[in-house]
Every structure is written in C-alpha cells, then in structure tokens.
C-alpha cells in the first residue's frame, strides 16, 4: 500500500504513545546523567555546609551548559561521520 514515502500508514495509538513516551524517557535519562555528573564535578562532598556555596552554584550552571554543548557537538559529529560513511559506502539509488 505505502510504497512511496513513509507516513502513508497511520501509526496506531500504541505507537504514537510509545513515541512520545520514548522521547520523554530520553530527556529524563539525560537529566539524570547530567545531575549525577555535575554534582560529582561541582559539589564539595564533605557536607560541612548545607547551603550551596556561590562557587558551587556557578559551577553547576556552567557544567549544565557545557554538558548540553558537548551533547550537541557529539551528536553533530556522529551525524556527519555516519553521513560521510553512507556516502562513501554508497548503496544504489536514493539513500534509504
């Protein structure tokens, strides 16, 4: 039925829900990873103080920004690399 173009077939309810759920899951995982890593890098683990020190707070802000930048950079790099590989390897006709 759907020889041309994707999306000709309507996704089922379960598929649509799963797609949104997966996206949210990915975001939650990324948030958890970032929290763990930036806490490890920025927070003094002796806990002599209950408050976030100014330096720690600034460190957390910068750490999270850098985490996102690294995420973006690596994602771009992987994408261009896999595109280059697909281009070199070829595969007849239109890229599938």
């Amino acid at each position: 039925m759907s020889m041309f173009g994707f999306g000709a077939r309507q996704p089922t309810s379960a598929e649509k829900i799963a797609a949104v759920e997966n996206e949210l899951k990915m975001i939650a995982t990324m948030h958890a990873r970032m929290t763990k890593i930036c806490s490890q890098k920025c927070i003094d683990a002796t806990y002599r103080e209950g408050d976030l020190a100014k330096g720690e707070a600034v460190c957390l802000d910068r750490c999270s920004a850098k985490f996102f930048e690294a995420h973006q950079k690596i994602s771009d790099q992987l994408q261009s690399q896999s595109q280059a590989m697909a281009g070199a390897g070829g595969g007849g006709g239109f890229g599938i």
């Binding site: 929290t35 927070i43 806990y47 209950g50 999270s64 996102f68």
Partner: peptide, 28 residues
C-alpha cells in the same frame, strides 16, 4: 548533621540543575 546537610544541599543542587536543564532543553 552531615546527612541532613547532604540532603538539603542535594535538593538545592537538584532544583538548580533542573531549572538550567529546562532552559537549555527548551533552547535546544
């Protein structure tokens, strides 16, 4: 004492990082 300070500080860390995460995720 250490444990209570640790919990308070971890919550503050969590809150701050969640705020930044929301901003960054939105702009991304």
């Amino acid at each position: 004492g250490c444990i209570s300070r640790c919990v308070i500080k971890s919550m503050a860390t969590q809150t701050r990082l969640s705020e930044r995460f929301a901003e960054l995720n939105q702009s991304m």
